[in-house]
Write a protein that binds this DNA or RNA. Structure first.
Lengths: 116, 116
DNA sequence: TACACGGTTGAACAACTGTTCATTTATGTT
DNA sequence: AACATAAATGAACAGTTGTTCAACCGTGTA
């Protein structure tokens, strides 16, 4: 039996029972919210936005965002782990580029939402 | 003159100058990342998902998510402030429903991304 | 080979976030 | 009018997050 944490009984038990089977797996839920968590930071949004225009190396991104290389590198790592950007070493520098087509679409949709 | 925080010079100044004018206003950036921040929590995703199926009152949502009414109410408030859900009092209860069409689309796109 | 430089890393710290708990408000019901 | 119940609220607490700082690694170049 599932562990109870609620502090009340259902008011419309029929609605609850109708909706329950439609709820996604907990696993999927966490993946979804983790994805949005990654997008939920203005620095990372800036990085994604910039990389949508052109692949760039860490130093140039730092200048563009007016941040330290370290801070940028930390956030690029988050994006890399989330498979949103890809790194490629070219000579002295590491060039980053977008690694996912969905991101552009989602950013656009979110923009529509925010701008309405 | 803008306050310098960077700890380095641009490597490809031409790329930086090409991308800079394409960057969004800081204001828009914050609105965007704030939106994603709201989506970046598994409880709130569950609430949105449930409300996509049916409008529901706080108590039923608490039972469905196996959480206290208080915790659910706090998160519904966040969603309300972000204009993602709407509250309507009916008799003894407060019924919540989705207040934004974009959310469904964005959730679907994010799902595609996560499931690929 | 030694150096300079681009990038990465880990620890530390302050700021923020989500749940819990106790209390309060509002309203339908008796 | 008094009570029971649905929901909201605020303070508090633990856990998480983003930037800074200092140190480090790796490699192209002198």
């Amino acid at each position: 039996m599932e562990n109870k944490k609620t502090d009340c009984d259902a008011i419309n038990i029929d609605i609850v029972n109708k909706v329950r089977p439609k709820m996604p797996e907990m696993n999927l839920l966490y993946e979804l919210s983790d994805f949005f968590k990654v997008m939920g930071d203005s620095t990372r949004i800036q990085l994604l936005w910039a990389l949508e225009e052109s692949e760039m190396c860490v130093g140039d991104l730092a200048v563009l965002l007016n941040m330290t290389k370290s801070a940028v590198s930390h956030q690029l790592k988050v994006l890399r782990i989330s498979k949103l950007v890809r790194a490629e070493k070219k000579g002295k520098n590491v060039y980053y580029s977008l690694d996912d087509d969905h991101v552009k679409v989602i950013l656009e949709k979110a923009l529509e939402h925010v701008c309405e």
